[in-house]
Design a protein around this nucleic acid. Sequence first.
RNA 1: GCUGGAGUGGCGGAAUUGGUAUACGCGACGGACUUAAAAUCCGUUGGGGGCAACUCCUUGUGGGUUCGAGUCCCACCUCCAGCACCA
Length: 680
Amino acid sequence: YRWTQWLFLQLYKKGLAYKKQAPVNWCDSCKTVLANEQVVDGSPRSEVGAGKCERCENQVIQKELEQWFFKVTDYAKELLEKIDSLDWSDALKATQKNWLGKSEGAEIEFNVQHLTFNIQVFTTRPDTLFGATYLVLAPEHGLIKDLKLKIDNWDEVEKYINQTKSKNKLERTDLAKEKTGLELKGIKAVNPATKKEIPIWLADYVLTDYGTGAIMAVPAHDERDFEFARKFDLPIAEVISGGAGGQCYSGEGKLINSDKFNGLSSEEARDKITKFVKGEKKVQYKIRDWLVSRQRYWGAPIPIIYCDKCGLVAVPEKALPVLLPDDVDFKPTGESPLKSSKSFNNVKCPKCGGAARREADTMDTFVCSSWYFLRYCDAHNQQEAFSKKAVKYWLPVDLYIGGMEHAVGHLIYSRFIVKALRDMGYLKFDEPFLKMRNQGIILAEDGRKMSKRWGNVINPDEVVEAYGADTMRIYEMFMGPLEDTKPWSQQGIIGIRRFLEKVYKLISNELKIQNLKLNKNSKFKIDNLQRLLHKTIKKVTEDVEALKFNTAISSMMIFMNEAVSNEQLSKEQLEKFLIILSPFAPHLAEELWQSLGHQESIFTAKWPEYDKKLIIDEEVTVVVQINGKVRAEIKAARGASQKEIEKLINDLTNVKSHLQGKEIKKVIYLQDKLINLVVN
RNA sequence: GCUGGAGUGGCGGAAUUGGUAUACGCGACGGACUUAAAAUCCGUUGGGGGCAACUCCUUGUGGGUUCGAGUCCCACCUCCAGCACCA
């Protein structure tokens, strides 16, 4: 964590790490704050449904605290734009795009009537400006206090603000709940397009931390504004055609009731109206800065010192690491545990030498995990976090495998850190993980998630005990595609055990290992087995590359079944087979390899190459279709011409009977595969 | 509501990307071995009809394109995942 602290200092120097007072997520069971990304909805089957700590599933509450943040928002644009250049799954990309939440619109200024104050709003629909019949501010909006003396119903307003404060995020964002709000009496705003006076309201459905914390309400063309206007009897002005009377229409269309802009399309009008009222085009993102402070013991201490004279002072890099003290109780209490350590807390200011105290919070563990792959390239370097040379050699990561749950946490943080370090000159690449695959989770046999709560957990140690580690390993790969969520089957695993036993028996004298040339009578079979082996090598090689382990295993099973039923297999064939099996069943393959007399490990053996000539069959099966329906199949020599095939199939009784009294209108021939006779 | 993904036998799943649907495995049924069971081995196994050769139906539903559709297009249904009063 010395180098994690170093990383913090680099971000701090660049202004990318900062401290601010803000409402934050607090888990009262873990006794710490959480990042937005660490608050989850909970399992779909949970009773309550929203806002839970991802670690303990406790309901998260909001607290107003001063905390450290990393400025991920500075990179929102690039984080979004570069997603499409990555070889990641669509689901992962979409989730991350969702989280970044880009929306394009404009900031427009509304003057407060007869006063010098004005209110900025963000809207994605400047084309509907003529229909803005009132404004709504978030209860936390800074302007409200400034206008206190002008507001006639201040007592009521204050009461509403306090009510909002007492609500947690869950209560406030409950979609089912009816909207609440009240008017700021005594003041009015002016719609910059219509120049008409419009009322200013306060409502908790407007969020303080998105956009400007204020909206222009267009009830005719926004569902939420419509609902609000109906409840409080506010005017509704239709400015986009296309809606049914008396209903809200949130789509686009031609402008109406919009003065000189009438007749324009929504798209054309957006720019023009924004210019007309001297508004500014703006792009908004939903993502917030990353809250990295934690009130926990286990974590890298934040390398900052507070001095009464100098204020906030960074720990000099030479003084790193700031070690965790051992004279504290590390159980979470809600206060940072490091605060209670005398040895840790009291220090001298690095600038003036005066009495000072250390920052007592530690960093989110995700700070460490957002750059570990850089350190892994150069783990023993004592002079720097990583050398440019080592990082250039190893990174970016070619293939990264991990769960979907990292979509909006680790994977965004890592991308952010890499971009920040790149801009500081430490790295020369933009993205940490070029190709990413998400393994699906293995569910319990009942199709639910494995959980202590359901008592359906499969203990891998017990599986290994009963069937062996190789069996367990292969079964997990055989169950289905890597990325699929799939249920475990205690019954199904026996098939893999049988397969491996078949392989084992091959060398335990139950089957004879013979040389290829051995038996004239079985030459045909041996030839076929040799062909099958090479097809299997091809299939396994390609499937491994594509991470399609389930079909690779299936093809090895087919080969084994064939080898066993023929009771023929040369030592050379067995060896090649063992090598392709070895990544799947390392223990068994190694043991059999040694028993064949090898001194070196099987993992030093060269991966077999397939013979291109052997994977092509000389005799092929051609399917005979009549009007697209399979009526017969024939064996033919590879490369047979259409005429030759037509001659062959004419004699087939089933073909004859289907052609009786009919006329062949067209013949479709796919070499070595299929012939389709189209008849009337 | 928005975004992404998926619907194939009793079950997990294959299908060269438009060309024999159900590979491989589990389970089930029948048989061999056994006093018996387990293990192992052999056979059968999508559904219907037929003694049989064969034949009809079948990839969530309904349409369409095509010589030919699990695969492509349109509409719908269901499930999973993510986001959600984001203006």
